[in-house]
């Protein structure tokens, strides 16, 4: 009894530091951001603490703003999709390899995260530019007459972001693949399932939580990406983060920039909430089906 009380207090003490850290580093800044988003800006006086909803009203009547917001969401969804399609096989390969090969894959995957974005964008220019490697090869093979511009469009943004973010998908999927009990797969195989069927019936469903985590991570990071879209897509294909930068840094209008940032936060959170609600509903339905199945007859592969 006495011992238990001590551990409870120990747990609480352990919580203090994270709570303070989260409060200072996360809650406080976000609160401040929301506060500034309601303030006003005057070129002579700077930010004035006169709180109104005018910054939001200005955004809601702005078609251009929604165009940029929609591009941000659309591109981020595409990035998430491509990361999932590319990341899954890589994750499978990753957990099946070991030693130097595994380390090698990790280094390749993590490379974009430790490389400066400027260097990386220059790298893409060397590859995709009009005098770049791809154009040179294509025209050398007689596939194209005039060099094509592969940079400065939405495709370039998707390519660049997938390159940077796919590692988050791979690691998430690999983590959940690792926990799939291989005896189930062997059991299925011994009962006559082909490798494909065993994968679809056992491995894939069990790795879905990892896929979901990876998708959320990639989507959130992509929605807030700034440097990669700006350098690869150029300013003609703006991401919302660019408009925030423009207002806050070039035009000194923090309140307007803060309002845009808050809207980005809300849009991202809302999409995440939708996905989370949808998956909750699916889980509840699956559990109900499972209970019904168990009520009907002898338990089958219960844990699945």
């Amino acid at each position: 009894m006495h011992k238990n009380a001590l551990t409870t207090r120990g747990w609480l003490l352990l919580l203090v530091l994270p709570v303070i850290a989260l409060g200072l580093l996360y809650v406080l800044p976000v609160f401040n951001l929301v506060r500034i988003s309601f303030a006003q800006y005057d070129p002579k006086l700077g930010v004035i603490p006169d709180y109104q909803i005018s910054n939001y009203v200005a955004l809601f009547v702005d078609v251009f703003y929604f165009e940029v917001l929609w591009r941000t969401i659309r591109v981020s969804l595409l990035v998430t999709l491509f990361c999932a399609v590319l990341g899954y096989p890589i994750a499978v390969y990753l957990i099946r390899s070991s030693g130097w090969r595994q380390t090698g894959i990790f280094i390749v995957l993590l490379m974009p995260l430790v490389t400066s974005v400027t260097v990386m964008s220059y790298g893409w220019l060397i590859l995709l530019g009009r005098n770049g490697v791809i154009n040179t090869i294509a025209s050398g093979l007689g596939l194209i007459d005039v060099p094509r511009q592969f940079m400065y469009n939405e495709t370039a943004i998707v390519v660049g972001l997938v390159h940077v973010l796919v590692v988050f998908m791979v690691i998430s999927i690999a983590a959940s693949l690792q926990s799939v009990d291989q005896t189930w797969v062997r059991a299925a195989r011994s009962l006559g399932a082909t490798p494909g069927v065993a994968f679809r019936a056992i491995t894939l469903p069990l790795s879905l939580p990892g896929l979901r985590t990876g998708a959320l991570l990639v989507f959130v990071l992509s929605m807030s990406a700034y440097a990669t879209p700006t350098l690869l897509g150029g300013t003609r294909f703006k991401f919302l983060s660019y408009l925030v930068y423009q207002q806050a840094i070039s035009l000194y209008n923090w309140p307007r920039g803060a309002a845009m940032a808050v809207m980005l936060l809300i849009a991202t959170t809302a999409l995440l909430a939708l996905v989370s609600i949808y998956s909750q509903i699916r889980t509840i339905r699956a559990n109900r089906r499972l209970r019904e199945a168990q009520a009907d007859g002898p338990a089958q592969v219960g844990a699945v």
Binding site: I126, G129, R130, N131, Q149, T230, G234, T235, R236
Partner: peptide
């Protein structure tokens, strides 16, 4: 215009012949 850049560093565009 090929591209409007955020900053004013055009070196890579000339180096790559863009």
């Amino acid at each position: 215009v090929i591209e409007f850049t955020k900053g004013a560093d055009f070196s890579q565009y000339f180096q790559q012949g863009e």
